[in-house]
């Protein structure tokens, strides 16, 4: 008996089981269809954009500098504050990509159709990342535009020596590109953690805990500067958000790209552990 699959004739015999990620195009199409047709996806992507831009704009609106001099405001960083909120929504999307399947039992169907678990995980990662990147571009562009308008209205202008928020400005362009990548990496980290944890609510709590708890711990480690520096250098959110800085780069405990690299390392480790667990555990 042959199983006809959508648009693709089944290759004869067992010759198709050669490469590790064989069947990736099929898996990608399957994951894309699932994600595209889930009712929440569009709303969540819209929420990423709206929350990021709204929090950034509100922060910019609350940013004052008495007389415009004597305070060191990083206009780009202030405009992109919303990333810290938007990442929570990205995490939700990433968690749902895998946890929803566990909560509905869909995962059994998925693995029946595509028994190669690494392939499934890779396909989920690719579809998720492409959607997050698209939303992140909109969110970051909107935040920078809002920040540019609002901060100028608050007197944070070039006349007082502040860099105008503009992509023509090298560090700002780096922060913009970096924050788009940051959101994508947060998505991958969340996907990894959610695959490990499986339960959707617990996974969301775990992801947000991994993101939000270390910065506060680092803050309260003020009495232990060594530990504080360590925490700011090697925890996912603190290190990753170093990419937002456009001023005072010499005072950073980790350089912008290295910080993003640390986050990438966390994401890779989470995905690796997730893949191994997917292989080892029963679904």
């Amino acid at each position: 008996m042959t199983i006809a699959r959508h648009g693709l004739p089944l290759p004869a015999g067992t010759a198709r089981t050669e490469r590790a990620l064989a069947g990736l195009p099929d898996a990608l199409r399957a994951e894309w269809t699932k994600l595209r047709t889930a009712p929440g996806t569009a709303w969540i992507l819209a929420a990423v954009c709206v929350l990021t831009i709204a929090v950034g704009a509100a922060t910019a609106a609350a940013t004052r500098c008495g007389g415009g001099t004597g305070c060191s405001i990083d206009p780009t960083k202030v405009s992109l504050t919303g990333i810290e909120a938007g990442q929570a929504v990205v995490a939700v999307l990433a968690v749902l990509v895998i946890s929803d399947e566990y909560s509905t039992g869909m995962i059994a169907v998925t693995f029946t159709a595509m028994p190669r678990r690494w392939t499934v995980l890779a396909a989920k990662a690719v579809t998720l990342t492409s959607l997050v990147l698209a939303a992140a571009v909109v969110a970051v562009a909107g935040s920078l535009a809002a920040g540019r308008l609002i901060l100028a209205g608050n007197g944070i202008t070039a006349a007082y020596g502040f860099a105008v928020v503009s992509l023509a400005h090298g560090p700002t362009a780096r922060a913009a590109l970096g924050s788009v990548l940051y959101l994508a990496l947060v998505g991958l980290l969340s996907l990894g953690i959610a695959t490990i944890v499986r339960d959707s609510a617990a996974a969301t709590g775990a992801v947000l805990g991994v993101l939000y708890v270390p910065p506060v711990i680092a803050l309260f480690l003020g009495g232990e500067p060594t530990w504080q520096r360590w925490a700011e250098r090697y925890t996912p959110m603190d290190a990753g958000l170093a990419i937002l800085n456009t001023t005072g780069l010499r005072d950073l405990v980790i350089s912008p790209w290295a910080g993003l690299g640390v986050l990438a390392g966390w994401a890779a480790a989470a995905l690796l552990a997730a893949g191994l667990l997917l292989r080892l555990r029963d679904a």
Partner: peptide, 29 residues
């Protein structure tokens, strides 16, 4: 929905605290 609710409560209660105390923002904000 659990996922949406968990994310929402963290964004509404915990995130403002982080932004408020962690020193990433200017004092006025």
């Amino acid at each position: 929905r659990s996922v949406a609710a968990v994310a929402a409560v963290v964004v509404v209660i915990v995130l403002p605290y982080i932004l408020g105390v962690s020193g990433v923002l200017p004092a006025s904000a």
